[in-house]
């Protein structure tokens, strides 16, 4: 597959330049898979934007709710889903009220999946009804509506106008949590977890008009672009990619350990860090080897 035999003899670097792409794919596959099965011990350390969001949610007034906007679809769920799960764990462990919405229809299924997972974790150790996580009381999954304007501006006026029924079909007016969370005035922070520029839309509509505090969980692709909003204070903290998720998971794990909530859970962000490290080193080596080969063959040709 790799070597091209012919009249002209190729150097090592030339052969390397012409290597079949599938060998590169195989290396990527192995470099990611092996550390997942045999991880090396890594402990994520929270970067300042992650710590900022954690601190705010951890210390915000108890009567204020955490609003999570699941603004991603399955394509970016590997990076973003662990963030939603970690945020839900943090909120339920500290007994915050949680509201969930989705700006894309496919965010609905992912939000439901995250809720089921975290609810199961807490319910499995609950000893009484009060310890359990109950829809309508501890959280409301308002669901999805279109267009964005309807959701982002309407929720600042009256949430039940925007969502007459929740995801499960219950009338939102009749839910116990509706007494406490009527509009953005009752929300401490909205965290938009997005694979697009949706957090900026939340800033443009909900923050500009209603002064809502916005946190951001984003794919690593968008993270570098969003630092301008972090710097301007329009975002209160940011989780960037799987690394951001891992750092938040670690903060939540420490918090829950302090509260004697030491049950075993899968922290998918943290779990991925060994593979991520190995893959980054592999990509750097790919670039270096590719460049050496390029310059070596160019010099030979010239």
């Amino acid at each position: 597959m790799a070597a091209q035999s012919g009249a002209k003899r190729h150097t090592f670097w030339e052969i390397l330049q012409r290597i079949d792409r599938r060998w590169i794919y195989l290396v990527v596959w192995l470099v990611v898979m092996v550390p997942l099965i045999k991880p090396f011990p890594v402990k994520p350390v929270a970067s300042p934007p992650v710590q900022q969001m954690f601190n705010y949610i951890d210390t915000m007034p108890e009567d204020k709710a955490l609003l999570i906007s699941v603004d991603y679809s399955p394509d970016t769920q590997a990076e973003l889903h662990p963030m939603t799960i970690a945020l839900l764990r943090h909120a339920f462990a500290t007994r915050r009220r949680v509201g969930l919405v989705a700006t894309y229809v496919y965010g609905l299924g992912l939000a439901e999946d995250a809720l089921r997972e975290v609810k199961r974790e807490f319910d499995s150790v609950a000893t009484s009804h009060e310890d359990s996580i109950i829809s309508g009381e501890d959280f409301v999954f308002w669901g999805w509506t279109t267009p964005l304007l309807t959701m982002m501006l309407g929720m600042g006026e009256k949430i039940t106008n925007v969502f007459p029924v929740d995801y499960y079909g219950a009338r939102t007016e009749s839910l116990p949590m509706t007494r406490h969370v009527k509009n953005y005035n009752d929300v401490g922070i909205l965290v938009s977890i997005a694979g697009s520029s949706m957090p900026i839309s939340w800033v443009a509509y909900a923050q500009t008009q209603f002064g809502l505090r916005i946190g951001c969980g984003t794919t690593a692709v968008s993270a570098a672009d969003f630092y301008t909003y972090l710097n301007s204070g329009q975002f209160t903290g940011m989780l960037a990619g799987m690394r951001g998720a891992a750092e938040y998971e670690e903060l939540v794990r420490e918090k829950m350990a302090q509260m004697d909530m030491n049950w075993h859970v899968r922290n998918r962000g943290t779990e991925a860090m060994s593979s991520q490290t190995a893959a980054h080193i592999a990509i750097i080596l790919f670039i270096i080897v590719g460049n050496i080969g390029y310059f070596a063959t160019r010099r030979r040709k010239s």
Binding site: M33, L36, V221, E271, A272, Q276, H280
Partner: peptide, 26 residues
């Protein structure tokens, strides 16, 4: 950061195959 993002997407699928399906990750 784009490298980090793309690799993460693949890690997510392997976590599913190795963890949820084959039970090699707990």
């Amino acid at each position: 950061y784009t490298v980090m993002a793309r690799i993460s997407l693949f890690i997510g699928r392997l976590q599913f195959l190795l963890g949820d399906w084959l039970g090699l990750i707990r």
